[in-house]
């Protein structure tokens, strides 16, 4: 830690790297202007618009039954999606980073696939899959199981769009850590599960956290995919972002921004947590050079 700080400042003051002060000032001002227009103004706007018609209406908008139902559904979805994708991420990273096998590159590229798919298409594929035209769809219909326009559809679509987050965070981390520690433990007689919980898990815990934070943020905020499968039934299949959209399209701007401010607050928490965990991951990597 100490080492890196001195190195950093040392680098910063190197003569060869000093741009002309006027250049520095100009570039800093341009950067700040960009951030002001694209990051800070939208944030400020949400609260300005949300409170425009007073604190009373703001509180009412986020406490009315439909808003609360949307918050509840969003939290339920995240509570199912994040653990499932986290377990998968750890498993996949274990398989990819601790063993060598054929087709590893292909497998790793397939894991990233959902990021290349438009959210609307992510929703569409589940509408098609559960529709009456596939065998799976007719089986669902025969057994009276509803996926589309109900909570399971929202959960599955969210699983799809947040699928890669934990895995892609862990694979490079675990690959850089190698397998020597685990192999030593096995040689000394440890059992598989012991190796994982005593050696591997402590090494990757911040990486898992980091992936879960990203996964959580996306599952709370997903709009396109959920919008396709939800059917927008108020109080039933509306998540927070969908509720924001409905209020906005009804020209109920103050309420829309009030509900949106919940999401902004969560986004700011995410950004802060991410920054903290990121620092942790770096410290951890520095203390355990592979």
């Amino acid at each position: 830690m100490q080492h890196s700080i001195t190195r950093k400042t040392g680098r910063g003051t190197r003569q060869s790297r000093n741009d002309h002060p006027a250049v520095q000032a100009l570039l800093i001002v341009l950067t700040i202007l960009f951030f002001a227009a694209f990051i800070f103004m939208p944030l400020a706007l949400v609260f300005a618009e949300g409170f425009r018609k007073g604190v009373g209406l703001y509180l009412e908008s986020i406490r009315e039954p439909f808003a609360l139902a949307a918050v509840k559904l969003t939290l339920i979805t995240a509570a199912i999606v994040v653990p499932l994708n986290a377990v998968f991420g750890v498993t996949a990273a274990w398989a990819v980073s601790k063993f060598s096998f054929r087709g590893k590159t292909l497998l790793v590229s397939l894991l990233d696939l959902p990021f290349a798919v438009s959210p609307v298409i992510a929703g569409l594929i589940f509408v098609l899959l559960a529709g009456s035209r596939t065998a799976f769809g007719s089986w669902l219909a025969d057994h009276g199981i509803r996926i589309i326009f109900s909570t399971p559809g929202i959960v599955i679509a969210t699983l799809f769009v947040t699928f890669p987050f934990v895995a892609r965070e862990l694979i490079p981390l675990m690959e850089s850590q190698g397998r020597e520690e685990e192999e030593a433990a096995i040689t000394l007689g440890a059992r598989g599960w012991q190796v994982f919980s005593v050696i591997t898990l402590p090494n990757i815990r911040w990486g898992v956290m980091y992936g879960m934070i990203l996964c959580m943020a996306r599952s709370i905020g997903e709009f396109g995919a959920v919008s396709v499968v939800s059917g927008h039934i108020r109080g039933m299949t509306n998540t927070i972002p969908l509720h924001v959209e409905i209020l906005y399209s009804e020209y109920n701007y103050a309420a829309s921004f009030a509900v949106a401010s919940i999401l902004v607050f969560l986004a700011l928490v995410t950004v802060a947590l991410k920054a903290i965990v990121e620092q942790r991951v770096h410290i951890h990597q520095r203390n355990n050079p592979s």
Binding site: P42, I240, A260, A267, K274
Partner: peptide
């Protein structure tokens, strides 16, 4: 830290 805001902020917002 705020560079990540577009990742964290729901697109609808």
């Amino acid at each position: 830290a705020m560079v990540d805001l577009p990742f964290a902020l729901p697109t609808a917002v």
